[in-house]
Amino acid sequence: MLRVKDGDDGAFAQIVERFQNRLIGIFTNMFADSALAEDLAQEVFLRIYRAKQGYEPTAKLSTWIFQIANNLASNSRRSKGRKKEVQFQVGGSGSQPVQVGENNVAEKSAMMPTRQLDKTEMQERVQSAMTVLNERQRMAVLLHRFEGMSYADIGETMELSTQAVKSLLSRARENLREALENYIT
């Protein structure tokens, strides 16, 4: 990042390459909209570039980048007034959000938990379970599971105390356990 600050565009391209999939992964699982996820990821990189002159290496680069991503996600939620219940897309291949409704395969399959679920079905189950979490819980879970962040790093990213992160993740995992109870073998 210090090289980016000195005007090295090649270094900036390396940062984009290193973090693009990670950011798109987080945003896709936050908002269940791949087009929005790409837009938000690009906006994160633009903000990083704009902020390059003021960058001080006081925190880990990844923490700083995910802090920007978290702020952007919060603003995006607020401005779009997203609804929790209208979220995840089937199979994660398209960019259209999908309504989780009564006729959803997830609910049908919940009635026959002993059936062996294929990978796509299981993905839908887990995506539906993620909608049970509030947005802060979801972000904390994704940073922990996808990014392997410690509680302290999640706290720094989300501007929370370590204790608050511990409670947030504890509640989130209890909610997930309840939502996925039938699919644990």
Partner: peptide
């Protein structure tokens, strides 16, 4: 085991021209 199920969540790759477009 519940937490391990989160590995089923999608890990989408960025489009091939993402870096180019961003730059």
């Amino acid at each position: 085991k519940t937490y391990d199920l989160l590995d089923e969540l999608p890990h989408p790759d960025a489009p091939k021209d993402f870096v180019e477009k961003t730059l």
